[in-house]
């Protein structure tokens, strides 16, 4: 018995040592598959479809990354992670990249030794209440029972918001979105709070979405983005520029429909560099020349992915808002490809 514990600790100790030095891209290539950490199921962002295939906004990023590396968007395995174990899973090397609607904060970036590689969704924390309560503002929630997912920034924002407005509340900590939904629908809590996108996704899965309102107050900035382990800048560059490629593609009008045509005959030098028909950007990243084209081919450019999974045409029904291109009054702004 004692011996077993020792070998366990020994293995753990050597595992820690092992991951400190490895090059992630080499590991991924050797494995032949990318391992991507996603949420345990949030409609529109990452959830299995009827055939059990993972789909969604965050999942699409992982497929694009797999496309950039292998030229094959299916060369990716998904690992559902809870809010509690996501960072440990990333730092222990269980996943290569975490695309799990995770808020970019200083503590997580610096103290938890992660590298956020960009923002794929600008979000903010909101409140959802049943319509019959007649609440129109979050400031009227004095004394309410609030369901929150534990282990998220949501808890801290909530505490700050109620303290700033000098009103009280009763927190009900919940492990997963599904349990929160059950408690909220049964009336065990008056309010459900999480990121506004998550609220919209959750509400879309209700039987009667119209009976619930999302309050106008957005009480926090929640820039959600994919992240990787700190210490492997090369890998972070690949992850970051894949996201930039998706955003730039939308800005440049490159879509999954016209990408083949454009890579053969484009006059625009920026598009040519992005698609690898000009310059050697792929080589600099240690990838193939058509890496960005493969990433875009996976599920389309940023705008296409947005419309397909969470846009206004879907049950989630999110407007572009802050997530429009900078040319459209949004915050999406990809650095130049040169």
């Amino acid at each position: 018995m004692t011996k077993k514990v020792f070998w366990g600790v020994l293995a753990a100790a050597s595992a820690v040592a092992g991951f400190a030095s490895a090059d992630t891209l080499d590991d991924v290539k050797a494995r032949g598959k990318l391992i991507c950490g996603t949420s345990t199921g949030l409609a529109g962002f990452s959830a299995p479809d009827a055939n059990g295939r993972y789909e969604g906004f965050d999942v699409a990023y992982c497929r694009a990354l797999a496309g950039a590396i292998f030229g094959d968007p299916e060369a990716v395995d998904f690992k559902p992670l809870t809010t509690t174990n996501r960072f440990s899973a990333l730092s222990a090397g269980e996943v290569d990249v975490l695309a799990r609607n995770t808020t970019w904060t200083l503590t997580r970036d610096v103290d938890l030794k992660n590298t956020f590689i960009g923002v794929n969704y600008y979000d903010g924390q909101g409140f959802m209440v049943p319509k019959e309560l007649g609440v129109t503002s979050a400031r009227e929630l004095d004394g309410a029972t609030v369901c929150i997912q534990t282990g998220t920034t949501t808890e801290l924002n909530l505490a700050d918001f109620f303290r700033a407005n000098n009103i009280s509340y009763e927190p009900v900590p919940i492990e997963t979105n599904a349990e929160a939904q059950q408690q909220y629908l049964a009336g065990a809590c008056d309010v459900y709070t999480t990121d506004a996108s998550g609220l919209a996704a959750t509400r879309a899965s209700f039987e009667a979405p119209g009976d619930h309102v999302i309050l106008p107050e957005i009480i926090s900035k929640e820039p959600l983005g994919p992240l990787v382990r700190q210490g492997d800048d090369h890998w972070a560059d690949i992850a970051s520029w894949t996201l930039n490629a998706l955003i730039a593609a939308e800005e440049l009008g490159v879509t999954s429909a016209n990408i083949d045509e454009l890579s053969e005959s484009t006059e625009n030098p920026e598009i040519a560099r992005l698609l690898g028909t000009e310059g050697n950007l792929g080589e600099m990243l240690g990838l193939s020349q058509d890496w960005a084209a493969n990433a875009i081919k996976a599920e389309g450019n940023y705008g296409e992915i947005f419309e397909k999974y969470i846009g206004e045409g879907t049950p989630i029904g999110l407007a572009r808002g802050l997530n429009a291109q900078w040319t459209e009054g949004g915050l999406l702004y990809a650095p130049p490809f040169r």
Binding site: T83, F87, G151, P173
Partner: peptide, 23 residues
């Protein structure tokens, strides 16, 4: 934590661990 009762596992090994990242 399965029922959201804030015991030692829920506070120290739950939220505190998450917020501080000191596993």
């Amino acid at each position: 934590i399965a029922v959201g009762y804030m015991d030692l596992t829920g506070t120290l090994m739950g939220i505190t661990l998450n917020q501080s990242g000191r596993e």
